[in-house]
């Protein structure tokens, strides 16, 4: 019986080790793909219509979900914030609360999470299917590098779209917060804006949020591209890769957010 437990334990450990090594393997491949992508970026940036097409697919087509979510997030922030702030008699600070939470955290983070769900999965599925139907192989045989033609434009499309989407998210969220706080609740409009302007710093808040969203753009797009590129060329493989895109992007965004915030605050 003791022997059985030991062997079971050994197999669990072995399994764990295998998975760990597998993850390192994947991380290495992802870094290599990232390197190749950067190396062949020049080639694809010279033909801007490829990148513009991808900005259309990742950025413009994500607008609706981003804007609607931002509006609701801003309104909820204002409602919740007012509820708490008025207990301390400082309900004019609501503008500060809404703006700071959006600009510093919620704008970049929620945008990245929505982006992973909307655009990231689309990228993974598209590249996975292109691989499954041998389109990437065919491109290679035509002496066209799939990384330069397919991967790099999508990468830049995502990296350019993300900060724009995050800025829009914050702006629309603040408008949503304004609509709830000023006309609905009756906070003074002048106090709303002036307190906000007094407390939101351009470099520390707006720029840091912008930097965050750029980093999230690189991370989310790269994860989506890698999962698609790495997917086994079957229907099941592609569907699993799509799920992994959402899970890994979300984890990466939240983890990176913590790391960057701790650097920015200190």
């Amino acid at each position: 019986m003791f022997k059985g437990v030991v062997s079971k334990l050994a197999s669990v450990l072995q399994n764990f080790g295998h998975r760990l090594i597998e993850q390192f393997w994947r991380l290495g491949s992802a870094s290599r793909l990232f390197g190749y992508t950067l190396a062949s970026s020049g080639e694809s940036l010279r033909r801007p219509f490829l990148v513009i097409r991808e900005i259309y697919f990742t950025g413009v087509l994500s607008l609706i979900i981003i804007l609607v979510s931002a509006f609701f997030v801003g309104m909820v922030l204002a409602l919740q914030g007012y509820n708490t702030l008025q207990k301390y008699g400082s309900s004019e600070a609501i503008g500060v609360l809404v703006a700071l939470s959006l600009v510093r955290e919620l704008g970049p983070v929620v945008t990245a999470l929505l982006f992973a769900g909307r655009a990231g999965t689309a990228i993974t599925a598209e590249i996975g299917l292109m691989k499954a139907t041998e389109q990437l192989s065919a491109m290679e045989m035509m002496a066209v590098s799939p990384i330069a033609r397919v991967v790099a434009p999508r990468f830049w499309g995502g990296v350019i779209s993300m900060p724009l989407l995050a800025s829009l998210f914050s702006m629309v969220g603040i408008l949503g917060g304004y609509l709830v706080a000023v006309p609905l609740i009756g906070v003074d409009g002048g106090a709303f804006w002036s307190q906000m302007q007094a407390s939101v710093d351009f470099r520390e808040d707006v720029m840091n949020g912008f930097i965050k969203s750029c980093v999230f753009g690189v991370a989310c797009t790269m994860i989506a591209l890698f999962e698609g590129y790495d997917a086994p060329p079957t229907a099941e493989g592609v569907s699993r890769a799509t799920t992994r895109t959402v899970v890994n992007s979300s984890l990466a965004v939240l983890g990176l957010d913590f790391v960057m915030t701790s650097f920015m605050i200190s």
């Binding site: 299917l129 292109m130 139907t133 041998e134 389109q135 192989s137 065919a138 491109m139 290679e140 045989m141 035509m142 002496a143």
Partner: peptide
């Protein structure tokens, strides 16, 4: 290799057209 491949054309099993 790229130069060599330009001398070749390949028809893939399912066509592999760009969708």
């Amino acid at each position: 290799l790229q130069k060599l491949r330009r001398k070749m054309g390949m028809l893939f099993q399912q066509g592999a057209l760009f969708t």
